[in-house]
Design a protein around this nucleic acid. Sequence first.
DNA 1: TGAAAAGGAAAACGATCGTTTTACATGGAG
DNA 2: CTCCATGTAAAACGATCGTTTTCCTTTTCA
Lengths: 174, 174
Amino acid sequence: METTARLAAAAEQLFNRHGYTATGMDRLTEAAGMSSRTLYKHAGSKAQLMALVLAERDRRFMARLAVGDVDALFAALEDWVAEEGARGCLFLRARAETGGEIPEIARAVAAHKAAFQAHVAAIVEHDLGGRAPALAEQILVLFEGATHAAVYRGVDAVRAARAGAAILMDAARP
Amino acid sequence: METTARLAAAAEQLFNRHGYTATGMDRLTEAAGMSSRTLYKHAGSKAQLMALVLAERDRRFMARLAVGDVDALFAALEDWVAEEGARGCLFLRARAETGGEIPEIARAVAAHKAAFQAHVAAIVEHDLGGRAPALAEQILVLFEGATHAAVYRGVDAVRAARAGAAILMDAARP
DNA sequence: TGAAAAGGAAAACGATCGTTTTACATGGAG
DNA sequence: CTCCATGTAAAACGATCGTTTTCCTTTTCA
């Protein structure tokens, strides 16, 4: 396994489980199985490592959401939560933890959220057969709500979001 | 102003803006206008201070949501976001930052979320005139989604949630 | 009046933080 | 054979962490 990929994978786990600030470099080097010298050679700094993790997670997450309709979108989230658990959105948490004051992290979060919003809007448009910005925002909110309510409500929250989305989509059809 | 209340208010601001771990005790003492000796006399520890902040915020937040119907619930959230801004749910963030491994914080979060869920269910029941657990979960998800999507979508996210909730409520009426 | 509680300022505690550096090992490529 | 990139192990860097302690002053109330 490539060094950088191994590092990113280990860092994603730790950051996701314990948070950005609470995860020390020693834990990262140990989990990645490399010396701090190598870690810094590849990542540059802790903040850049988090940005790397977020970029990697963005690709992985968005690839999972490459579906054709709104119902499949929530089905994909259901699978994600079942496989990876629910700890809330890593992007929003990273941004909140750092107060938005670390440029590389704030940039990665903004990029992901913009892409995510555009993606949802595209799926809604395709599903409905026409632009529907207001409906797309509602679906976005439902998705974000499922992500965060699942932290304490489990997969039921995602299923509720899925059912709610179906009603909203139906209500919007001619 | 009472010492403990002043401390809790200052700590809530700092924890909310910069996160739990990233907020040092020196910043807390300075913002609260007291020595570390006094802070520890009143709060006990940083973790207990966070638990105190969460308990205080729970009272303030729930009082704001003491309304009679679902639409008013989202109107109240709209006001909250307009006045206090949107940084995501402080409870979920505190729990995520600490990995759920700090008992007094995990306890405060669990208590708040249980109360919040019961509150939403009660409002939905009162609004609809009968128990509707599935609908209540959908409204809960919409509320949680509005809270978190507002971080990057602003008040529009709350308004979208409000509109979506109205449709879901209407669809559930006989 | 006088004891006790409460608070301030500041030093000190050991621990841990993110990061850099030093010294040494390994393994192809020219 | 040598060069150079790449890696490890470990010490060291100054800074900051949460917390306690020391010494002194102010307030409170019986």
